[in-house]
Design a protein around this nucleic acid. Structure first.
Length: 402
DNA sequence: CGAGATTCATGTGAAGTATACCTTTAGGCTTAA
DNA sequence: AAGCCTAAAGGTATACTTCACATGAATCTCGTA
């Protein structure tokens, strides 16, 4: 056994990797050159440039679907900006926040607390008045005498949870600063997001706007070629793989990030199977694996109550039936709670939990009216049967044995 | 037969509650003069 | 008397509950053709 393991590791090191630089294929990688986004990058740069002269840049609002390069573009620009600012000795602080991260930046308090921590202040997770946290934050900023560019990614999530007052406060407090200024860059996947917010907030937040259109198949192909030439070793990819991947991505969603993920995972799979090249068949397997990993991860990370609700949903939908309703889920859930000794949540809360699960994409829940028979959510499970079984197993472990 | 009223099951908003945590403050104890 | 520590008081954010009202199409009702 020992020897076998030893052999494995030795072989592993000796073996030539398919990857030249895996970094270039990871989703947080920011390339030096972005394909097909020159125009957008230019515009962002123009809006933000005044900060180098010590002026406050206009607030900027960026729309576009996922995987259209919004995040990479802004990061690309701000990285450069920070670099130049450093050389020119201009005080500049760029703060990138992904508002989607639960428990970290999904309320006003947590956002401001997070920003304060970025500036080196200790803020407790709870207990302080939000006003107080604002004061600490603004004081820290004032003290630093720096201009801040605040990038709020997935801002639609934040506003949905915390309300648009938050943005208003941010802009309002900005006016009280003497030595520092904040410019807000909002990024949203939701194209109609600004229709739902207070017009005052809207006008001040989107002094400048920018729309990212989805990439088409050819553009995705270019991007993938660029990345693969960096990320993979030469000749490690069968001809046609990149094309297929691009075509697939363009047809399905126009999401470049997912296309890159797909290639990376395909490469990992090929490598694990000791195959010399990445070929088309790996793409399908990779697609399935990515989806599986995504779902498994988000399910296992959920709190117990949410898992219990999900388990109830799976259990209810078990027998042939595809469509189920809130009431059924709730009674199943109540039983489950009794069985495992969990204090049951109210139906009100479970209703919200079902909504959250829908947001995560683990289930589809649509509010429908059944006429005389009331109104409810119609829940369907978009996952493969195998997947559901796998998850049910995981949930059982999590719920019954702990 | 069809327009309008009724109905059901639960969606949904607002307000209230429990919990966990924070700062402030008052009291008690120790220490040094 | 001054200094320091502790515990209670008073306050907040968050997750959840309670209360009460909103929803919207299938079904029922009843007037009319």
């Amino acid at each position: 056994m020992e020897k076998g393991l030893n052999q494995f590791f030795t072989d592993y090191v000796k073996k030539e990797s398919l990857f030249a630089s895996k970094k270039a294929l990871q989703s947080n990688y920011i390339p030096d050159m972005l394909e097909h986004r020159d125009e957008e990058i230019n515009q962002i740069a123009q809006v933000l440039a005044p900060v180098l002269r010590g002026d406050r840049p206009s607030n900027l609002f960026i729309y576009g679907k996922t995987g259209t390069g919004k995040t990479v573009s802004i990061k690309h620009v701000t990285q450069n900006l920070v670099q130049v600012a450093k050389n020119q000795e201009v005080a500049l602080n760029v703060c990138y926040v992904n508002c989607k991260l639960k428990k970290i930046t999904d309320t006003e308090y947590r956002l401001i607390a997070h920003l304060s921590r970025e500036l080196g202040k200790e803020i407790p997770a709870t207990g302080l008045p939000t006003d107080e946290v604002y004061k600490i934050f603004l004081a820290a900023l004032e003290e630093a005498k720096t201009n801040m560019i605040l990038v709020l990614d997935e801002i639609d999530h934040l506003v949905q949870k915390a309300g648009d007052e938050l943005l208003y406060n941010l802009v309002r407090h900005n006016a009280e600063l003497e030595n520092s200024q904040i410019a807000v860059v909002g990024i949203s996947n939701d194209l109609v997001f600004t229709d739902h917010i207070d017009p005052r907030v809207k006008s001040s937040l989107s002094e400048e706007e920018l729309l990212f259109a989805p990439y088409n198949a050819l553009q995705i192909q270019d991007i993938l070629r660029k990345r693969t030439s960096q990320g993979f070793g030469k000749g490690k990819i069968e001809p046609g793989v990149v094309e297929k991947c691009a075509a697939f991505a363009a047809r399905e969603h126009g999401d470049a990030r997912r296309a890159i993920d797909l290639l990376r995972v395909a490469g990992e799979l090929a490598e694990r199977n000791n195959e010399p090249k990445v070929c088309v068949s790996h793409l399908d397997v990779a697609e399935a694996k990515i989806e599986k990993d995504r779902v498994v991860e988000s399910v296992t990370k959920q709190p117990k109550q949410v898992q219990a609700v999900l388990h109830s949903i799976f259990h209810t939908a078990d027998s042939e039936r595809k469509i189920i309703f809130t009431g059924e889920v709730y009674s199943e859930y109540s039983e489950l709670c009794a069985k495992i000794g969990l204090r049951p949540l109210t139906q009100r809360r479970v209703s919200d939990v079902i909504g959250e699960l829908d947001m995560l994409g683990i289930i589809n829940a649509r509010v429908i009216s059944k006429g005389r028979y009331g109104r409810t959510r119609e829940i369907t499970i978009p996952l493969a049967e195998q997947m559901v079984e796998h998850l049910t197993g995981l949930l059982k472990d999590a719920l019954f044995f702990s």
